[in-house]
Design a protein around this nucleic acid. Sequence first.
RNA 1: GGCCCGUUGGUCAAGCGGUUAAGACACCACCCUCUCACGGUGGUAUCAUGGGUUCGAGUCCCGUACGGGUCACCA
Length: 545
Amino acid sequence: MDLNKLANALIPDEAVKPLDYYETLYPERDLEKGAEVTRLAPSPTGFMHLGNLFVALANERIAHQSGGVFYLRIEDTDEKRKVEGAVEVIHSSLKYFGVEFDEGADLCGNYGPYYQRQRAEVYHAYAKELIKKGLAYPCFCSESDLEKTREYQTENKLLPGYYGEFAKCRDLSEEEIYANLAAGKPYVIRLRSQGDVEKKHPFRDVIKGEITVTENNQDVVILKSDGIPTYHFAHAIDDHFMRTTLVVRGEEWLSSLPIHIELFNVLGFKLPKYGHNCSIQKIDGETRRKLSKRKDPEASLTFYREEGYHPAAVRTYMMTLLNSNFEEWLLKNPEAPIEEFKFSMGKMGKSGALFDILKLNDIAKTHFAKLTAEEAFEFMKTWANEYGTSAQQAYFADREYLLKVLTLCMGIGGKQRRKDVICAKQALETISYFFDETFAPSGEYRFEKETVQKAIRSFAEKYSIADDNSAWFEKVKAVATELGFATDMKAYKADPSAFAGNVSDIAEILRVATTGLSNTPDLWTIMQILGEKRTLDRLNAAASA
RNA sequence: GGCCCGUUGGUCAAGCGGUUAAGACACCACCCUCUCACGGUGGUAUCAUGGGUUCGAGUCCCGUACGGGUCACCA
């Protein structure tokens, strides 16, 4: 068969340039030895998964730590999954979590275009080359043809797929091919695989270590009927010409690694290094499974923004999952920027980690405990303007007042910072009682109504905003004594039945009366912040409720 | 089902032939205390399993079980 003629019939010379052209257009990058070129290559589906941030972070760290390049390539070869504005979402959501690209889609760069649909020419040039060499061929099988062979294969417990004797179009005669073409039959271009599934080779994955790969024997599709490449072919071409040195991607790609190895080989390209990372999992009843976009809200990056998690906290959590020694390093260097941590591929986990929101919350709390009142204010304000209720947005009108509230609630200036702010949403919910619009009297007391009212009334009569903390507490104690509550905790513990209760019970009554909650920070300070009038109003309202 | 990957406390995990098997989160107890927290002290709890190799195995080899991934003109 005249392969040149076939190649020209399928892909005319005018459509492509000689192969040398591409090699000079995309030259080797001029980087220091050891510098890694990595990438993130998502589909523009408009949905950003936690897993996207996870791999992005790994790739970003490796590139930047080694003095290399981290770029963004858009895998838009599947028309069905494409969503308008998706690339913008990729940039903005990753940027929010501190991941930025050096080059790529919608950015500058000499190795573009970075959208695969715009790179048709390169793919065609190399597909043509493979056809010329007899390493690729047109396949006219229809979906139902393929379906039939698959059925036959599963029935007979054979390896499914398009290979060997099942590769019907592999050895079509010249006449058949041209007749099909003349008839306008749709076709795809398939690789003529040279592999043998009986042959296995050791392979070094930078994350998994030594693994064995079986040779590929599938005549995989490299160009779909619309002339767009499949992932496999685009991956080989793009990562070669964008001069990627290290591909870190999800574990789900491990099984197609044999295809990629054969493709690089057949194209005469140097194989990049590979690292296949495990996916973040979630426990669902008894079983573990991947974090699911449909079932788990926390799978989406927008979840963390909507809840008001600080981006640095999420990034830190990702890092602890990414590199097992990160947490220890962070403990020793609490103030150091993440960039100083020596990220290592070898320290990436070999098995999938379970997503643990409790751990994230702890990290988030620790992180908030490092912010100043102003920083917390600004962060929460930004959050509230985007996701908060209008009442919450109004909290920010009186800066001085809110700053005081935050200072108290976050323990700023105290001996120790409180660690109970997880995210902006939760924080604003817990301070709602500082604002009349959102203050919700509860009326839930653990004592008789009469006792409660007496206690509140008696305290209200004595209260003065001028009291310092100890004078204030003396008054609480006085109320306790009046009502037969213990003021000496030791005495109370020795014989609780001798008292109606103890000071802390009185404090709780006052706390519920002024805040609606039984657990708040220091009550004296709360009253100082609320001011005398508002405090007395609330006490009086509670006393007569 | 075939192929590939994995399995150390409830969770993330250190470990690289000899350790009392780190640490963090969670949990429990006690202390501090006007509440809740924060903090402090302590505690419960792990090498999936059966065989080898070895003076010695969480660490090396084989089998088994379990979990995950993948078998598209989707990435």
